[in-house]
C-alpha cells in the first residue's frame, strides 16, 4: 500500500461495516477499482472479520437462570409493593370488622365459652375482605412462579387460593353492613376472627394458620 492509500485504509473498516454514507462509499469503491494494495488490504480485513465471527459463543451454565432468580428474589420490586398496596387498601375494612369481632369475642370470653379452633380450610371472610386477601396471595404466588420457581416446591403461597371459590357461606358484605356480623352463627364469627389474624400475620410475613383466639386482638 502506498502512502496516498492511508486515508482510504482508515475508511475500509467502516466501509465493511456498512457505516459510510453514499458519497464516501462511492469514493472508496472507485479507489478500490484502481488500487491493488487497497483491495488486498480489504481482503485481509475480511479474513480478520471472519476469524472474529468464528469465535464460538459460550453456552450458559445450566444453573445460570436459577442463580439469577436467586439474586432477583429479595428485591423490593413489583410484587411486594403491589401486595403491600393491596393489604393497605383492605386494612380499614378489616379493622372495622375485626373491632366488631373483638367486642363479640370479649363477651363470649366473659361468659366462659371456650371457642374451638376451626380447621384452616374452613377459613372464610366477608366477600370484599376475602377478595383482597386472595388478590394479595395470588400476586405473591405469581411472583414466586415467575422469579423464584423453586420456592413453590417448599409450599406456601398458593395454599389459600385453593379455597378461593368457597364462598357459599359467606356473610353479606361487612363493609357496607358491619352490624350484620353480630347476626352470624358463633362458629362462623370465630372463623372471621381467625381470618383477620391471618391477614395481619400475612402483612408481617409470619407463618399463617397458627392462630389461637387469644391472639386475635387487633392492636
Amino acid at each position: 500500500m502506498i502512502a496516498a492509500c492511508d486515508d482510504f485504509a482508515a475508511e475500509l473498516v467502516a466501509y465493511l461495516d456498512g457505516e459510510l454514507g453514499d458519497a464516501d462509499r462511492a469514493r472508496i469503491e472507485t479507489h478500490l477499482g484502481t488500487c491493488l494494495a487497497c483491495r488486498r488490504e480489504l481482503e485481509q480485513l475480511r479474513r480478520l472479520r471472519a476469524l472474529i465471527d468464528g469465535m464460538r459463543p459460550l453456552e450458559l451454565s445450566t444453573d445460570f437462570a436459577d442463580r439469577t432468580w436467586q439474586r432477583l428474589d429479595p428485591l423490593p420490586a413489583h410484587a411486594p409493593r403491589r401486595r403491600a398496596r393491596t393489604v393497605l387498601w383492605a386494612a380499614p375494612t378489616l379493622a372495622a370488622a375485626a373491632a366488631l369481632a373483638l367486642v363479640w369475642y370479649s363477651q363470649v370470653a366473659r361468659l366462659g365459652g371456650a371457642p374451638t379452633a376451626p380447621a384452616p380450610h374452613s377459613v372464610a371472610a366477608a366477600p370484599r375482605a376475602h377478595d383482597a386477601n386472595e388478590h394479595a396471595v395470588a400476586s405473591r404466588s405469581e411472583k414466586e412462579q415467575a422469579v423464584a420457581p423453586r420456592e413453590n416446591e417448599e409450599g406456601g403461597a398458593p395454599r389459600d387460593v385453593a379455597n378461593a371459590n368457597d364462598v357459599t357461606e359467606y356473610p353479606p358484605d361487612l363493609v357496607e353492613h358491619p352490624e350484620l356480623f353480630l347476626h352470624l352463627p358463633v362458629v362462623r364469627r370465630l372463623n372471621r376472627l381467625e381470618h383477620f389474624e391471618e391477614v395481619r400475620q400475612y402483612q408481617n410475613d409470619q407463618p399463617l394458620g397458627q392462630v389461637s383466639p387469644g391472639t386475635a386482638e387487633v392492636g
Binding site: 459460550l58 450458559l60 437462570a65 400476586s139 415467575a146
Partner: peptide, 28 residues
C-alpha cells in the same frame, strides 16, 4: 407488574449479554 415479561426478556438476551461480558473480561 408482569414478571413473566421480565423472564421473557432475560431468556431472549441472557446469552448475548453473558457473551458480551465474556468477550470483555475473558472469564466465564
Amino acid at each position: 407488574g408482569d414478571e413473566n415479561a421480565f423472564r421473557e426478556l432475560f431468556e431472549k438476551h441472557a446469552r448475548a449479554i453473558v457473551n458480551f461480558a465474556y468477550n470483555f473480561v475473558g472469564s466465564r
